[in-house]
Nucleic acid binder design. Sequence first.
DNA 1: TCAGTTGTTTATAT
DNA 2: AATATAAACAACTG
Length: 263
Amino acid sequence: MPELPDVEGFRRVLAEHGVGRRIRRVEVLDPGVLHDLRADELAAALTGHRFRDPDRRGKVLIAYTDGPTLLLHFGMSGDLRWATPTEPRHQHDRVLFALAGGELRYRDMRKLQGIWLAPDAGTVERTVARLGPDALAIRRAEFDQRLTSRRGAVKSLLVDQAVVAGLGNLLADEIDWRAGVNPWETARDLDADRRRRLYDEMRTVLRAAVPAGRVPPRRAWLTGVRDDPDAACPRCGTPLSRRRLGGRMTVWCPTCQPEHRGS
DNA sequence: TCAGTTGTTTATAT
DNA sequence: AATATAAACAACTG
């Protein structure tokens, strides 16, 4: 699930409930989500410290404290919840951070990513160094430059975290669909107007998705119909096409996003 | 039983 | 060198 809007939602949960509060206890229910770190090391490093204003880079939640910094990635099935201690735990709650009045629960069914601990700012920066500019912060000129300097399919570039950080499979398909760009198109083969559309639609989609904390499955969006077996394009009614691109299921409208554009 | 899944990294091939 | 593909990670669903 988690793409940039989801992680932004998790950042808000942490900001609302965690900031300024002391970490009373860290309970590791499944050490399998910890990277290069034992459960007792995590607890010892964080207990007694207070969360500070959290940040986010792409899909990485950066949970600063007045001590070390926690880096959380949510893979394909992660979640961060605020709960009272009496609420029953979820089967896939992996780590609990107990604060005054409640606890933050890191939940993740598949455990594809996990939690890192960075002792200092330099370690934080090294960990996120491979990521490109955040999709919410990147300016048009840099977005354009980074897309056209590579030769791969537009969709592959959009989901490449080193090009721009935060977009996943759903968002990339949604942006291409709204911009009328065929996902297999090479960015440098698009004219300036089409590339402008890509950037504008990325902004539009994110602006709607971030407050929702997810890519909203509205029926007028590609996201809202893509799981239907007989899905039709919400814009023109053409049956949607699907095929794998770079290992991920790609959904597009053959009418609105024709191949061999321009040329 | 088998294929598929909204993420990322690594190895391998081109 | 850059790019493309598959597999692996883990757990679950249909």
